[in-house]
Amino acid sequence: METPLVELKSVSKYFGSVIALKDVSFDVRPGEVHCLLGDNGAGKSTLIKVLSGVHIPDEGEILVGGTHIRFSSPKDTLDKGIATVYQDLALVPLMSVARNFFLGREPLKKTWFLRQFDIEYANRTAYKELSDMGIQLRNPEQPVGTLSGGERQCLAIARAIHFGAKVLILDEPTSALGVHQASVVLKLIVQSKARGIGVIFISHNVHHAYVVGDRFTLLKRGKSAGTYQKNEISREQLLNLMAGGKELVDLEQEIIKLNNGKR
């Protein structure tokens, strides 16, 4: 089996008396989409913050490419090829697509004695990278504010990939999107996977997750409720697990018993 790109082993994280994560193990391999599912407050965001270097875990270990590591900052994590696309996407609506694409990492060219921002290269590259991923821009100089929600999500993902992400962490990338927009983003996830990138896909939506996912990890109240390969679990089983299916089944049984007793 391939070594995971990044791996958490029995990680715990406490916030005072709150146990946000307890003994959770999680990993992602090259060319794999690993979905992280769970209810509100289950600890999904805490888990990805541990993975992206925002939180340092209280217990457990982190391995990158098989070696032990201690992230010192989000910047450090980014340098190791682990890119997180947060829900706010880190885009500036009034600025052009190309300027956003290279925000903070502007390409320079030397003219005479000056080091200038190479806007032509930025336009050309942003346009090409996005069209390679199936997003056709009208113009790389159009403001990001004129893009649809799905296109913005794709821009943020394409940017992370262009700058060498090996692991892509996506926090609910489809939750605010309509059916068509969401499918554009899901397509991009499949493409990233085809490029050998390990994708960690956080979602509430089992339908979206099941379409693109290879493995599924369920978080419940800070603990892992199991990791399943796609061939081990059906969409319905996953749905039941997610929706507290067991509790519902138990409830159903009890109602049946009660009814039988009455009869």
Partner: peptide, 25 residues
């Protein structure tokens, strides 16, 4: 403003400071 890295940072700082910070500006 138009042709330097600093110019891009000026637009980003005023347009969406938190996004700019997240991108290392």
């Amino acid at each position: 403003l138009m042709r330097t890295r600093f110019g891009n940072w000026i637009f980003a700082s005023g347009g969406e400071a938190s996004a700019a910070r997240n991108m290392g500006v």
